[in-house]
Write a protein that binds this DNA or RNA. Sequence first.
RNA 1: GGACCUGUGGUGCAGCUCGGAGUGCACGCCGCCCUGUCAAGGCGGAGGUCGCGGGUUCAAAUCCCGUCAGGUCCGCCA
Length: 581
Amino acid sequence: MTDDYLATSMRDVMCAAVTEAHVGQRVSVCGWVARRREHGEKLAFLDVRDRTGLIQAVVDGTVDVRAEYVIRLTGTVTRRPEGTRNERLATGSVELSDCAVEVLAPAEPPPFPLDGRVEVDEAVRLRYRYLDLRRDGVAANLRLRARVNGALRRAMDAQGFCEVETPLLWAPTPEGSREFVIPARLHPGEFFVLPQSPQIAKQLLMVGGFDRYYQLARCLRDEDLRADRQFEFTQLDIEASFVTQDDVMGFVSRAVLDAAEVATGVRPTSIDTMTWAEALDRYGTDKPDLRYEMTLHDLSREFETSSLRAFSAPTVKALRVPGGGEFSRAALDGLTETAKALGAGGLAWFRVTADGLDSPLARHLSADEAAAIRAVDGGAAPGDLILAVADEYVVACRVLGALRVAVASMPVGAGPHRYVWVTEFPLFEGFGDDGHPLAAHHPFTMPHPDDLANLESSPLTVRSQAYDLVLNGWELGSGSVRVHRADIQSRIFRVLGISDEDAQSRFGFMLGAFSYGAPPHAGFAVGVDRLVAIFAGEENIREVIAFPKTQSGSDLMTGAPKSLTARQLAELRLTFAPKGQ
RNA sequence: GGACCUGUGGUGCAGCUCGGAGUGCACGCCGCCCUGUCAAGGCGGAGGUCGCGGGUUCAAAUCCCGUCAGGUCCGCCA
């Protein structure tokens, strides 16, 4: 592949593209001074850097440039003298000699080293993000991200999808995540919101006949930040008509596997599938990390009649940690604290030894119970550790699932990439303060056809046609088959406690649209930031975002958010309540 | 709203347990020297509100309380 097309009026070739094929040619390069090595008044070396890499220039005499000066350098490509080649540099066999240096812009010394050899405090990097972008790490991640975006777009195009942009200024729909609010200057006292996702817009596109829509959509949610959550993030947003759940999973699988191939050079062979119930039961989470085993095992029957108070609970779940006998008492205390923090009454642990079980509970176990502990997960070997939690079923599963992840302690990008579809999520999760069940996904999610009859009688047992895609324990995205029939939608609203008037005021335009012929449709959204972070081997999506916010939601570079002038506030007719109200 | 970790010249760290002069290391910066380096090398120099405020003490980077900032997590994220 040639980089010649990157030549401009100012430069002939990119720095790292200078090769022995250019020897004898007089060329110009443009870039930043990466380093200067002076050898007295007669000789100096400059490393010139652009986004492709470095080229060394030899300067006869002194040259008045410092690190990070922007220069245009014209020189003759020369084969380096014998013994002075640099194997570690792509351009290490050549150099530019007989150089003319033109300073395009001088530069202050940078506030932190740009050569990537030292870890720099992230607050400093974020304050000077434009300098951080000159370094290899984030720059390479952003280029990877661009390639992933390209692969996703090509995959969707190839599958007949049409890219449509949807509004950023949208109507408030109080439900779900907190929305960013935009005052409407032309309508004092009224507000737009920024969409937490294009969910409703894309369903309206289905009514509009765009039977295959996609978009790399920016989504905005005014919720607290995490390593894998920013206020604004990007989704590959997909919706299609006349399709089933399997069709959508097929579309998404192709796009994600294409992106994986582009990003990693290897196409994953397959994506596993399991139900939500199975994920909870075996892995204690709805986003199982399949890179390691350590599944959860049920000991409820074995301890049903146990005299042990610690195990008198509806469910007893256990986990075998191979080699976990090495864990120190302090480490086990830490796991116990984690278990308690997650809502368990405590954590039972058993070190498996040649003689038996080493545990504070060991002497209280019956022979059968001890045998049951040792038989967990196909049988424990000396040196293994067994962790057990007794509680309500869901608590026992979730706590042990969290311990499983904590014990494995595996970076998200490490090892093989294990994709898994998790299907048949419950339609509702728990009850709200008003006594009505809460929608697990969103209120337009289609119930599982086999469970439709139980919608009113036992809503919490109703499965939905909602599905997640999980990679290495991170939720990559979720989707569902949507409700397109007014009768089912009414029943769901009723169960949720949303009155007809409520439904009309919140989603009236949508329900109206659906009355004019809504096709059966379903969709999905893939979190691009997370996907790229895993491809890049990063634990934090800030590393794949050009200008991210801190965890407290501020931008250290611009200082945002900031207050407005009194004049701006007056124009928006905004005043503020006194602090503390 | 809550828990935990971190904060020391521009950068990265050590010093903090067990209080005793802003002590140390590496990089960078400034000056001088140096004709084949490539993380160049040699010599010299400058650079500090130990995040901020309060307390304890004869004495605080060090102990205590509060606070701010950054991070990880819980809550939150239909």
